[in-house]
Design a binder for these strands. Structure first.
Length: 611
RNA sequence: GCCCCCGUAGCUCAACGGACAGAGCAGCAGCCUUCUAAGCUGUUGGUUGUGGGUUCGAAUCCCGCCGGGGGCGCCA
């Protein structure tokens, strides 16, 4: 946020180093890591080490030499605008900001930019984030929720970070799993259906589990059982064949049941506040994907083993000239001419590049598919798409339960809707004691925001490559390092501002006159830490967008809430001594509320006005 | 056999190659007539799996080993 000052000082340091013949061309800045102190620091270890390596170190140990340089630089800078103090210590050069001046600037900037504070400069690149790819004919469970929340948060972050962003969903609406459900449905449950849209998915899931039992080989199977199973298997195959051939009856059944799932998916996405821009369906990519197989054959990338009864393959390692197996050989078409997951992803990628002109293609898919995406990206590279280098698989660890992996067959699934409802119930129970005057309707709404906030934060506050063992009590805990903790900070800030308004105290929301926000009093440690944390938001957004990591924002938001809670506890705002102090603190609170709101938005968490 | 991910406090997790490795939960001791106690303050707890290497400096980068998880030509 203080680029001008930084650049001016940098210029001085680099000029000095050039004059001293020191090997230093770029400077790395970091915040001073001491609590209650606010400023930026850089070190001279690298310069000292380079100098020594060049044989001009005069035998002085690197740390000592770094300290010498720091001291000389300190003298050279003398004084600088906005810097209250400069020190050289342990090879570091620490520049302490003049808190009042910087506080005014930070707060002023935030209030002026409002919801846009932290927005990155336009990157002039189009990003497509693909997430929310559940299979239809199944229910949406907590693992899907991690995917959806991670994807949506990533999309919000890239968008806010300055990338033009397209949100894409890719439901798996066809495949053996889907056919299995259709087969069992038609055979045993034809004409039945639950009315509630959230129960249909669960019901189909039960049918799937039952079908899978019937179709899998048992231990010590009798000849009769074996015959029965094989008969079922033949029926299922026949169903798939009919679907493929476009049989009207099978297609109609498929359409109807598919719509149940999509209806539920849309409802859940709405609950999560997710709006998808582009829907790709596996069933719609199937036919076009056959064309790309021929293209890859013509280009000499793929090899046809069908004459020998084999599939169409791409020998990726061989094509890349690798001797050790890494990307292996991938099958892109079965010998019966039907397509695979990989075929469709290749066709879809091509479509994204050519039809949607995306520069960066991001895939939020669980980490068991890492090899699959490495293969996709490498084939795209062999194919000659320059965007291949900007494809990224955001691989996240899968979500399991304390009892073990989720399994439809074993009926061990934590459904999203059940968890969300439970979250709302728990939040509502807590609210009943806290806000007895509120209407039930309002309470419900806020309870839902809190419940979902807890859930979203539990998913986003863990680095994406880590597996999550989903414990309901832990995920729906509202104390400590949680979503509601951050929401509560927002509510407290809001509460102060509301009260100020009620008492007729003017809160300057926007100031066109710089300096009207005066922090010309001795700022407490808490105020300095708060302002400092606020000033870091743009950098956090930039980092999260570059690294595709919502965790950076999750951590940031918690730290900000933490600093604010401490501030709230020990620094009076409305009771502050002196109108000027009160005015300044009110603006600081308004700025905090704004940044909390901006950060929560990136985490797909609502900011309730009260709680 | 090969590839990928992980190993940090009792538990769950953080930490652009930088200053004493930080939070939460759990435990212990305090704080509600004052802007909401979903909060605050204090405190207990560590040879960052292990052995080397690179570096002025390693939880972080490289190599070996141990332990856990995932994946590997016609599932998605």
């Amino acid at each position: 946020m203080f680029e001008n000052e930084q650049r001016a000082i940098e210029a001085k340091i680099i000029a000095f180093c050039r004059q001293q013949d020191l090997p230093l061309t770029t400077l790395k800045w970091q915040p001073i890591p001491f609590s209650g102190e606010w400023g930026m620091s850089t070190s001279f270890f690298q310069a000292a080490a380079d100098e020594a390596r060049a044989g001009r170190g005069q035998g002085i140990p690197v740390p000592q030499r770094a300290q010498q340089i720091a001291e000389q630089v300190k003298v050279q800078i003398g004084s600088a605008a906005g810097i209250s103090r400069i020190e050289a210590v342990k090879g570091y050069l620490n520049l302490y900001f003049a808190p009042g001046e910087y506080a005014a600037r930070v707060v002023h900037t935030i209030l002026q930019k409002g919801a846009d504070f932290g927005r990155g400069v336009p990157k002039n690149e189009r990003v497509m984030v693909e997430y929310a790819q559940p299979n239809t004919h199944h229910s949406f469970h907590i693992g899907h929720a991690r995917n959806a929340l991670l994807g949506e948060s990533l999309a919000r972050i890239t968008e806010f970070g300055g990338f033009e962003t397209i949100r894409a969903s890719y439901p798996g609406d066809i495949g053996l799993g889907v056919i299995t459900v259709l087969w069992a449905y038609e055979k045993f449950y034809k004409g039945q259906q639950p009315s509630d849209i959230h129960e249909r998915g669960q019901w189909l899931l039960k049918i799937y589990a039952e079908a899978t039992r019937l179709l899998s080989e048992k231990e010590n199977e009798t000849p009769a059982e074996k015959a029965q199973r094989e008969a079922y298997e033949a029926e299922r195959r026949e169903m798939y064949r009919k679907w493929d051939a476009g049989d009207a009856g099978v297609r109609a059944l498929w359409q109807e049941t598919r719509e149940w799932s999509l209806e539920e998916l849309r409802a859940i996405l709405a609950i999560l506040d997710i709006q998808i821009d582009v829907w790709f369906f596996e069933s719609e990519v199937d036919e076009p994907s056959k064309a790309i197989v021929n293209e890859l054959l013509e280009r000499g990338i793929a090899e046809d083993e069908r004459p020998q009864g084999g599939p169409v393959i791409v020998k990726i390692d061989e094509k890349l000239g690798l001797t050790k197996e890494k990307y292996r050989t991938a099958v892109i078409l079965r010998n019966d001419g039907t397509t695979l997951y990989l075929t469709k992803d290749l066709a879809l990628a091509k479509q994204k590049f050519e039809q949607y002109h995306v520069d960066r293609s991001l895939y939020v898919v669980d980490n068991r598919q890492s090899l699959h995406f490495q293969q996709v990206f490498k084939i795209l590279e062999l194919w000659g798409f320059p965007q291949a280098s900007k494809c990224y698989h955001l691989a996240y660890g899968f979500v399991s339960l304390p009892e073990g992996a989720m399994s439809a067959r074993k009926g061990r699934v934590a459904l999203f809707k059940d968890v969300a409802d439970e979250a709302e119930r728990r939040a509502l129970a807590a609210m009943t004691e806290r806000t007895p005057d509120m209407s039930m309707e309002k309470k419900r709404e806020i309870a839902r925001q809190i419940g979902l906030g807890a859930l979203a934060y539990a998913m986003l506050s863990v680095d994406n490559n880590k597996d999550i063992i989903f414990d309901v009590d832990e995920a729906l805990n509202f104390d400590g390092h949680t979503g509601p903790y951050i929401q509560n900070a927002y509510v407290r800030a809001n509460s102060i501002l509301k009260k100020a308004q009620a008492e007729g105290i003017q809160v300057q929301r926007e100031t066109s006159t710089p300096g009207i926000t005066a922090f010309e009093y001795a700022l407490t440690k808490h105020e300095i830490e708060l302002v400092e944390q606020l000033s870091r938001f743009p950098a956090a957004v930039e980092q999260a967008a570059q690294e595709y990591r919502p965790l950076v924002i999750a951590t940031y938001a918690y730290d900000l809430a933490n600093v604010f809670h401490s501030f709230y506890h020990s620094v009076p705002v409305l009771q502050a001594e002196g109108a000027q102090t009160q005015a300044a603190r009110l603006q600081l609170v308004a700025a905090t509320r704004q940044v909390l709101s901006n950060a929560l938005r990136l985490l797909v968490i609502q900011a309730p006005e009260v709680m």
